[in-house]
Write a protein that binds this DNA or RNA. Structure first.
Length: 283
DNA sequence: CCGCGGGCCTGAGAGC
DNA sequence: TGCTCTCAGGCCCGCG
């Protein structure tokens, strides 16, 4: 479910309750997530304090007082739930969502503040892992990640370097976390529409033979940043009909003013891509 | 090396 | 109503 904007939103909501809090008790109800949860998972958390809760790509990164780091990934269906203590003082939404399923509550953090943080993940594509801080940089999960799309370090020159010589379609390039880290199936389609680029166009064609970015590369960088920033904008997170421009809008009119095209759905490396054949012409 | 397709899981929704 | 099929916002691996 979550791409960078959604993971960032989870971080913002979790940080106030986790940062500064101590793990009193950690319960692992199911350890067979995407990767098996380590046998010493709970013992490496209990009694430790969370120094900070950050994000890298789609990973949540909790720094612990022990020098360990807790890496969490939501996969496709992972989510966190925050419950206050005792059940007496439950958040109001408990009253109108009384039957929310706890079937897939796989990991539970009981914090010293009295708050409980629950990780729920029906499909179990998510993961949780503890690594020692010095090993974090070399960790296979993080080491190969490309730049954070919203950082200043992500610009046309950097994108050009990543795309040079690559014969994959642009859509596949944007979903490749080594090229740029944090886009997924939705925002890849969205960014390509904003940039007016065909999802099937070869990635290498945004780069000159000498490796310099063409104007399209510049456009794509700007589009990626725009799309992600808008997604994180509070007004856009609301459940409104215009949440996405093209994603899941097969058959609808292209939202670009004066375009008049119709949104098409194609399948690329097994995933749906949505785009407008008129303003995102192959070239 | 590179690109693609399959697989991992469960649940929601469409169609019969 | 109930069954079957397809598809889902991620990522890793192995094949050609």
């Amino acid at each position: 479910m979550p791409e960078l904007p959604e993971v960032e939103e989870v971080r913002r909501r979790l940080r106030p309750v986790m940062a500064g809090a101590k793990f009193d008790r950690v319960l692992v109800h199911r350890s067979d997530l995407r990767f098996p949860i380590q046998p010493d998972f709970a013992s490496r958390l209990e009694g430790r304090t969370v120094k900070s809760l950050g994000r890298r790509a789609k990973y949540l990164v909790a720094e612990l007082s022990s020098g360990d780091v807790l890496l969490m990934h939501l996969g496709m269906s992972g989510s966190f739930r925050v419950e206050s203590d005792g059940g007496r003082d439950r958040p109001a939404d408990y009253y109108w969502e009384p039957e929310r399923s706890t079937l897939h509550d796989h990991v539970v953090f009981e914090l010293s503040s009295g708050v409980t943080v629950v990780f729920n993940d029906p499909r179990r594509f998510g993961s949780m892992r503890i690594v020692a801080a010095p090993d974090l940089g070399g960790d296979p999960a993080l080491a190969a990640l490309g730049p954070e799309p919203l950082s200043r370090g992500f610009d046309a020159a950097v994108l050009a370097r990543a795309l040079k010589g690559r014969r994959i379609p642009l859509k596949a390039a944007l979903s490749d976390q080594r090229v740029v880290a944090g886009l997924g199936n939705i925002y890849a389609s969205e960014a390509l529409h904003v940039a007016r680029l065909s999802p099937t166009r070869r990635a290498s064609t945004l780069v000159t033979p000498s490796g310099a970015p063409r104007p399209e590369a510049q456009r794509l960088v700007a589009a990626i940043k725009d799309v992600l920033r808008q997604a994180m904008d509070k007004r856009h997170r609301a459940y409104t009909a215009d949440r996405f421009r093209v994603y899941d809008r097969e058959g609808e009119r292209c939202p670009r003013r004066g375009c008049g095209g119709v949104i098409k759905r194609i399948v690329q490396s097994g995933r749906s891509t949505f785009f407008c054949q008129v303003c995102q012409r192959a070239r």
